[in-house]
């Protein structure tokens, strides 16, 4: 396949960036998108240029490190697929492909296509845990949890924290991510004790980081490689409302 790539190049966090065109003549349709970039980088190194920096690690769609916006869509055109599992056979010969980093104020570009996603960690640190000391846990079967609840929590837990939801949202909102994390723990009996505190602090951390708000576009769910549902956002909205009312009356 012949391709023209328009790739965002940016020299460091404070450098100015621009799209640069690269031509590739012999791309295998069986290669993955990242392998195609690997080969482009090999060419660049050979010709003495600096390779394009991009984040990647497991390359099997689970670590959540890869973060490319391909033709305006985070992780590219295939649904339920991360950029690392996207294969070139989904593009056509001669196509021009634009590759940009995640765009959001809380995700500053560090270099080329690499962004800093640490505010997502901060949201989790604010309350994305159940306070349980190592060794203090009761037997795993002490609390029965219905299969439905366990499956529901698992649906939320499938989030790989890649940030595509933020990147896709016209408002750069992190609601889907935050909601998936809070809903997983808030749905389980183990997480009930800290339910109100959790949702209040995670939303506060999300706001503080400067993410936008949810305007219910649903773009986040559409690009999510794990298909995380908007239901979790509804759940978080509901739980936050309850927790806020309780807080007003001094109970949360």
């Amino acid at each position: 396949m012949k391709l023209t790539l328009r790739i965002w190049r940016q020299d460091g966090q404070n450098g100015s960036g621009r799209l640069v065109d690269y031509k590739m003549d012999d791309v295998s349709p069986d290669s993955s998108f990242l392998e195609m970039l690997d080969l482009l980088n090999e060419d660049l190194i050979e010709s003495g240029d600096e390779p394009i920096a991009f984040d990647h690690d497991c390359r099997e769609g689970i670590c959540g490190m890869c973060s490319l916006t391909i033709n305006g869509i985070p992780h590219g055109p295939e649904r339920m697929t991360t950029a690392c599992q996207l294969h070139m056979r989904h593009f056509s010969d001669g196509e021009t492909i634009t590759v940009e980093p995640w765009r959001a104020k809380p995700f500053p570009v560090l270099q080329d296509l690499v962004v800093d996603r640490s505010p997502m960690d901060a949201i989790q640190q604010a309350g994305g845990f159940i306070s349980v000391r190592t060794g203090s846990a009761p037997d795993g079967n002490a609390i029965p949890i219905s299969k439905e609840i366990a499956d529901y929590a698992m649906d939320a837990a499938a989030c790989i924290g890649c940030g595509a939801c933020v990147a896709a949202c016209k408002n750069a909102s992190a609601m889907l991510f935050t909601a998936a994390k809070s809903s997983q723990l808030n749905s389980l009996p183990q997480g009930k004790a800290e339910k109100d505190r959790r949702v209040l602090s995670m939303v506060a951390s999300m706001d503080e980081a400067g993410f936008g708000n949810c305007t219910n576009y649903g773009e986040c769910q559409a690009v999510c490689p794990k298909g995380i549902s908007l239901d979790f956002i509804a759940q978080m909205n509901r739980e936050y409302a309850v927790a806020s009312v309780k807080q007003i009356f001094g109970r949360a």
Binding site: I130, V132, A137, G140, K147, A150, A153, L185, L188, Q190
Partner: peptide, 18 residues
Amino acid sequence: DQCVAQGVPFAREYGGLL
């Protein structure tokens, strides 16, 4: 036990056990 307490959603049977 530790992982269950942390909220790891292990697969469960209909009766609610692991």
